[in-house]
């Protein structure tokens, strides 16, 4: 029993699955499902289709070079059957698979390392730049009663105190904006 790889998406094809197309020069194209077969018929390049393994490898999304892939490699040398070797191989498969999964997870976490900071930065920038969508700047300036210090105090006095105590960056203008936003929103809720 041999587990083949799909020509398009590189997933494993188990026996009895998929379709294979034999070109006249005897090159065999195996497909795991009709989705891959259809994409092939549409002459799509698997390197340009985002969900394929080829794309992910090419764009550094997945781990490419690792010693754990050596086990799964196709070998053209026939092995003489040996019960002990077979047993050891079966044990090794589990072990190596575990290692591979761990390494892949590490690769993913390394790749995603700076993502949260970037996202937060972008969010902060957006809040700073487009607060006027929530509240008109002129309205804020001309009528300080609109910002409702009274309600702000009554609603979130305990919270703010806690925040002052706990948060290091409570003096940050950003958090100040958050609080202001919350208070205005709660005011709106009170009005309607």
């Amino acid at each position: 029993m041999r587990l083949e790889k799909c020509w398009f998406c590189s997933s494993t094809i188990y026996p009895g699955h998929g379709i294979q197309f034999v070109r006249n020069d005897a090159k065999i194209f195996r497909f795991c499902r009709s989705k891959c077969h259809k994409n092939f018929k549409m002459k799509r390049n698997p390197r340009k289709v985002k969900w394929t393994k080829a794309y992910r490898r090419l764009h550094g999304k997945d781990m490419t070079q690792d010693s754990t892939f050596e086990l799964e490699r196709k070998r053209n040398r026939p092995e003489r059957y040996d019960r002990n070797v077979a047993e050891n191989t079966l044990k090794a498969i589990k072990k190596i698979d575990k290692i591979r999964v761990a390494r892949e997870a590490r690769h993913h976490s390394m790749r995603m390392k700076g993502k949260k900071a970037i996202e937060q930065q972008a969010a902060a920038k957006e809040l700073e730049q487009s607060i006027h969508l929530v509240k008109a700047p002129a309205a804020l300036q001309e009528d300080p009663s609109l910002t409702l210090p009274k309600i702000r105090v009554t609603v979130s006095r305990s919270q703010t105190e806690d925040a002052w105590k706990n948060n290091d960056n409570a003096g940050n203008p950003l958090t100040w904006w958050h609080r202001k936003l919350n208070s205005t929103l709660s005011y709106a809720r009170l009005v309607y």
Partner: peptide, 10 residues
């Protein structure tokens, strides 16, 4: 026989 399919160019 195993349930997969095969097709050719011509």
């Amino acid at each position: 026989c195993d349930g997969s399919e095969i097709k050719f160019d011509d």
